[in-house]
Design a protein around this nucleic acid. Structure first.
Lengths: 210, 210
DNA sequence: CTCATTTTCTAACGATGTTAGACAACTCTG
DNA sequence: CAGAGTTGTCTAACATCGTTAGAAAATGAG
């Protein structure tokens, strides 16, 4: 292909819009490359560009560097997770069923795209406590907070501070999911999934010692 | 340095022993390089070799490739963790204090060398459920099992199978430690440490719902 | 003292992230 | 509708990385 075959023609507005679409395609391409190549460590700028029919330098028009690309994927991932958690919370009739439902949605998200889940939790230096944390991640945490508030209001950690129980729930979920994903749980994903049920039951019934 | 200045002279036995020591020095060098360079992803074969006064190809005499070197570091890490957990379990008088003590040792291990902790839990495809799991990692889990058996015998998950409660404890510890290490817990390590206390209290007092 | 072995290095390969610079294709202005 | 200017895209290159081959030097053994 001789340099300079335009993909997109039209007014300046149309092209700005096309650049946004290219950005989204690059994010999807990175995800697909990770799924096929066994993790985001093996994702290559050239491979990502190839997947959308371009050469490597194209990526640098939408992202400053590889880390920025991966940060974009992380953001997409948290948005997707927040949507699923929210949907699971909404599709529940009895309050008691809310905690297992949200936990199940969390589990299924990780199982559906383990590489994405790993990236979301292992990429270094993603801002989280700070104000410039990804809004999608904050949304995830809000769902967890609400879940704890309605489905496990008596958890002993609420005595520490308002968010403590939600933090612990997140830690419990992430710990079990993460260990299972890395093959650290004897019995594999099947038993890991059963342990998740035990986990939610124990969390919901935890009370301060009399 | 003109090629071929021997470091070690002496009989064949002396040199075999020296090769083992070089192996250990390389493992330590990798750890040091990770500590200074911000993670094992930035550890370079050349840097590791440099640190022990050699050039890169030397590493391949002790390790088949970079992954083998990192696996060696993981093994050393689990051995160290097992020692610390074991020591914490032993240095406790009342049975009730055992769970917090072991959890504290776990926490301090991760805090002392976060990069090592991350490597131990994030390096892909480390065998764990299988018979060729690192014995050091199995030792870690044995201590956790014993801790649960004596300090939280009534945990509801024990109804599922004998190891379930220990698996959950491991997941709880790892989840909180991991989220804190990655800056995912609002309030940072200080609050994370407090949440660990809440976690152990909740775990110890968990009982099946009547 | 000679020789075979062992240790260590230099040099190189392909792949990677990233940048600079060239050039062609397009839009816009007159 | 013609030229100018902008913008999209590529090729080529750089430094660095993991890794390997092969040469050269130093040593222990006979």
């Amino acid at each position: 292909m001789p340099a300079g075959q335009y993909r997109v023609k039209g007014t300046a507005d149309e092209r700005a819009q096309a650049r946004e679409q290219l950005r989204a395609e690059l994010l999807a391409a990175a995800r697909a490359a990770a799924a096929e190549g066994g993790g985001f460590e093996n994702v290559t700028m050239r491979a990502v560009a190839d997947r959308v029919g371009y050469t490597a330098p194209i990526v640098y028009q939408s992202f400053a560097n590889k880390r920025a690309l991966l940060l974009g994927v992380v953001d997409v991932g948290f948005a997707e997770l927040a949507d699923r958690l929210d949907a699971a919370r909404g599709a529940v009739d009895a309050e008691a069923g809310m905690l297992p439902a949200v936990a199940a949605a969390y589990w299924e998200f990780a199982a559906a795209d383990p590489h994405l889940y790993r990236l979301m939790h292992n990429l270094p230096d993603v801002p989280f406590g700070t104000p410039d944390a990804p809004p999608s991640a904050i949304r995830c945490f809000e769902v967890l907070k609400d879940t704890v508030r309605t489905a496990a209001p008596g958890h002993p950690a609420t005595a520490y501070d308002d968010d403590a129980a939600a933090d612990l729930l997140w830690a419990h979920l992430h710990g079990l999911v993460s260990l299972t994903l890395e093959g650290r749980i004897k019995g594999g994903p099947a038993r890991g999934r059963d342990l998740l049920t035990e986990l939610t039951a124990a969390f919901a019934s935890a009370r301060a010692t009399p």
